[in-house]
Amino acid sequence: MPETPTRRHRPLPDIFDWFDDSWIPSWLSGKVGSGTHAIRIEELDQSGEHLVRAELPGMDPEQDIEVSVADGVLTIRAEHSEQIEEKQRSEFRYGSFARSLALPRGTADKDIHAAYEDGILTVRFPMPAEDAAEEHSIPIRHKE
C-alpha cells in the first residue's frame, strides 16, 4: 500500500490523539507556534479529491478561522475566545489552535477550496496526477 503523502512528516500520526496535546512539542505534533492546541483532523480520498476535515466547533469561519498554503504546506489556524461567564466547570478549549500538513506533490494552490459547516472545516483539492509524484531523470547538457 503506498504511503499517504500528507502523513510523511509524522512517524506516528495517531498516537497524539491518545493524550492531551499540552506536552507535545510543536515540531512533532504539526502545531504551528507555541501556546497553541492541535486541531484534530481526518484525511480522506474521495472521488478523485483529497479532503482534510478539521474539528472546529463553535467558531465563526469568517472571523475565527484562517486557511493558508505556502511552500507545499497547508496551515489551518483558529482562535476560540472564552466568553466571560460564571462557570462551575468547563472542558472547552480556548485560545489558539493550529495544524500544518504537507500537501501531496503537484497540488496546485489555486485548486484548494475550504468550507465550514456544523463545526467541521473541510478543505478539498483534486488529487494530483500520478505522474506529478513520480521520480524521473533530468537530462544533463554538456557545456562545450
Rank of each mutant, 00 (worst) to 15 (best):
S90L: 06
S90N: 08
S90V: 11
E91H: 14
E91I: 11
E91P: 10
E91Y: 13
E91V: 14
E91C: 13
F92K: 15
F92W: 15
F92P: 08
R93V: 08
R93E: 10
R93D: 11
R93F: 06
R93C: 05
Y94R: 15
Y94F: 15
Y94M: 14
G95R: 05
G95Q: 10
G95D: 09
G95E: 08
S96Q: 15
S96P: 15
S96M: 15
S96Y: 15
S96W: 15
F97Q: 11
F97M: 14
F97S: 11
F97D: 05
F97H: 14
A98T: 13
A98S: 14
A98E: 04
A98R: 06
A98G: 15
A98C: 12
R99P: 04
R99D: 04
R99H: 11
R99G: 03
S100C: 10
L101Q: 09
L101P: 04
L101I: 13
L101M: 11
L101T: 04
A102M: 15
A102T: 12
A102C: 10
A102R: 12
L103G: 04
L103Y: 02
L103H: 02
L103A: 05
L103P: 00
P104S: 08
P104E: 08
P104H: 06
P104V: 05
P104I: 06
P104R: 08
R105F: 08
R105A: 12
R105Y: 08
R105T: 12
R105N: 12
G106N: 07
G106K: 06
G106P: 07
G106Y: 06
G106H: 09
G106Q: 05
T107S: 01
T107R: 00
A108Q: 14
D109W: 00
D109T: 01
D109E: 08
D109H: 02
D109L: 02
D109Q: 04
K110Q: 12
K110D: 07
K110E: 09
K110Y: 06
K110H: 09
K110R: 14
D111S: 07
D111C: 12
D111H: 07
D111T: 09
D111V: 07
D111A: 11
D111I: 06
I112C: 02
I112M: 05
H113Y: 11
H113F: 10
H113V: 09
A114W: 02
A115T: 10
A115W: 04
A115R: 13
A115Q: 13
A115V: 11
A115M: 08
A115F: 07
Y116L: 03
Y116V: 03
Y116A: 03
Y116F: 07
Y116E: 03
Y116R: 05
E117L: 15
E117V: 15
E117P: 12
D118G: 08
D118E: 14
D118P: 06
D118A: 13
D118Y: 10
D118R: 11
G119R: 08
G119T: 04
G119V: 02
G119P: 04
I120A: 03
I120H: 05
I120V: 09
I120P: 03
I120Q: 07
I120Y: 05
I120C: 02
I120L: 04
L121P: 01
L121D: 03
T122V: 03
T122I: 01
T122A: 02
T122F: 00
T122Q: 01
T122H: 00
T122M: 00
T122K: 02
V123C: 00
V123E: 00
V123I: 01
R124D: 00
R124N: 03
R124P: 01
R124I: 02
R124F: 02
F125H: 02
F125N: 00
F125Y: 03
